[in-house]
Design a protein around this nucleic acid. Structure first.
Lengths: 344, 344
DNA sequence: ATGAAAGCGCTAACAG
DNA sequence: CTGTTAGCGCTTTCAT
């Protein structure tokens, strides 16, 4: 039996609107009545129904976060930080995973839309037209992509890719391969562009393999194709693929970094305990989660106030290269893995 | 400008209740009007407001899932499967992470309670009294814990622990150590009880170290204490700790499995690519997610029907031991790591 | 400072 | 089959 505002009012001997005020505008009610109402509420176990409140105020104090794959360890830290940022501003966060399905995604956002004040969208694969449809129904902030006019949080992965390629070239590598991620991904495009420019500038070649789904499985399967290119260093779209590649290379008897250098992108927790520990471009996922919430809440409030302009609409976060143990100078000329392809 | 049922009614030239019926009981409206209403809705971009509907029906068609730590890779597969199971039954899933804070947790559930039809609670650390308070406000299914009368989904980790210990003893180990997890955890209690019984039965000793927070960091820090026990095999509360331990042991120059055998619990994805690949008790996380949703939906519907009895109230899922490369016979008697504690 | 009344978007009897 | 009438739990004018 859910207790409503009316039960409280009756027991406390006041009108419902007084009870309402006690919770949503306490300064408008006298200390005496307020205390009484609070006491009764406590005693009865009254909990305001946020949905009902939202119906009338138009605000739910909930935020939605949409990710393509919860099982990708890149997202949880971002989500968690978004959650604490939201909580600091008295908002709750509903997370939803789209299972990499851009179609389900649009419906999901819509289903969420009416129950949240805004949506934080991490969805590299959703089409721009989908997003433009959606942002008419609910305030949206996108992460790591750009859509016309939409506020976004970007991580400067181009800079990271540049640093990675430069690092590799300084070690003496001249033949690089890029293990590409999903073709629609903004991050993938950034990496590709920056990496090939940096390679060109350093006089190195950069061959591209892909696209791939960004999982350890694709990384592992890519081991042989990578070896066949004859390159001495690999830049992978993300750490998951890089770690899978490490595994595949080990299976083929190729030592990393002695036989081949590998660098990833993201700096997920697993990278620091991979074998060898992975050199990678560190992405500020937590900062991104927090910035995205800031931007989103800013948007939400602008709808209520009327000064819609002069609001940050794009935040770009710095990335950096974390050099660990998966990169080294290329093997001496003529070196070849002893028995490439020997193992299962 | 949100389109309401009233806008549609006006344009379609029908009464609001007809529009309402078109969406919630289509068979009650003639094909002709239904088509017209649908067309107008489409044209206007009308989206039913689920919150408003929920206010009156008492059902939101949303489910909540609460986990202590999204960044623990054990949970995402469970959540994802829960999500697809829910979606098959026309429900959406809101996920929330409590950041291992049992206090925030109770409030979180309450905040969620009014916006969902039921909550799937994975919270080893919440107190039973909290849970008993909560389950009066919203239907709850708990995972991997037992609370009086509450439906639950359990994974038979006791059986897994038994198999693990037996495996170790058959390899010849006689001195085992249990790297315990959080003290309040049901899973931890199950493992402890089953492991020590199995050890006793096999004539082996089992020393316990802990409690620990279930992270790679605690696993890593536990390396030295583990070595100091003089045991030859370790059973860790979960894979995260086991993998951390692997890392700590490597730092101390102790080879696994030659110098020490390690087995984990959970069988997270990382275990299959750890070095060495981890022997572990495989937990049916996905099955648990699905079963939990089944149970929850069953609960929810029982509230509406009156035959509240004869409903499964406890599902126990089988676990199994996955033997990989982190277990082997103990080192020859008298063997000691050459320079324990040498590395940083 | 408090009460009265209207209404958020929608559904659920009940008529017709 | 469709319209009428209430009202879900709450906030918000507007009076008083």
């Amino acid at each position: 039996v859910p207790i409503t505002i009316r039960d409280v009012a009756r027991v406390a001997g006041v009108h419902v609107s007084t009870v309402s005020r006690t919770f949503s505008a306490p300064q408008l009610v006298s200390r005496a009545t307020r205390d009484r109402v609070l006491a009764v509420s406590e005693e009865l176990g009254y909990r305001p129904n946020r949905a009902a409140r939202g119906l009338i105020t138009g605000r739910t104090n909930n935020l939605g976060v949409i990710v393509p794959d919860l099982a990708n360890p890149f997202f949880p830290p971002l989500i968690k930080e978004a959650q604490v940022a939201a909580r600091e501003r008295d908002h709750h966060v509903f997370i939803a995973d789209t299972d990499e399905d851009p179609v389900a995604e649009e419906d999901l956002v819509r289903a969420l839309a009416k129950q949240v004040d805004g949506v934080l969208l991490c969805s590299p694969r959703m089409t721009n037209t989908s997003i433009e449809r959606l942002c008419q129904e609910v305030p949206i902030v996108v992460v790591n992509r750009q859509a016309r006019g939409l506020p976004c949080v970007l991580m400067d992965v181009a800079e990271g890719a540049r640093l990675a390629v430069r690092h590799l070239c300084e070690l003496g590598h001249t033949r690089l391969v890029l293990l590409a991620g999903p073709s629609g991904s903004w991050t993938n495009r950034q990496i590709r562009r920056a990496a090939s420019a940096a390679a060109r500038a350093a006089g190195a070649s950069l061959e591209e393999l892909g696209p791939h789904t960004p999982t350890t499985a694709s990384g592992e399967k890519a081991a042989l194709p990578v070896l066949e290119t004859g390159a001495t260093a690999v830049l992978a779209y993300n750490d998951l693929m890089a770690i899978g590649l490490l595994d595949g290379l080990a299976r083929h008897g190729v030592p990393v970094p002695a036989g081949l250098s590998v660098v990833g992108v993201d700096d997920i927790a697993a990278s620091a305990i991979a074998h060898p520990k992975l050199t990678t471009v560190s992405m500020p996922a937590r900062a991104a989660g927090r910035s995205a919430v800031d931007l989103l809440l800013q948007q939400v409030h602008l709808l209520r106030q009327v000064d819609a302009d002069r609001a940050a609409t794009q935040v770009v976060l710095r990335t950096r290269l974390v050099v660990r143990q998966s990169t080294a100078p290329p093997p001496a000329a003529g070196w070849r893995p002893e028995h490439p392809g020997d193992a299962p």
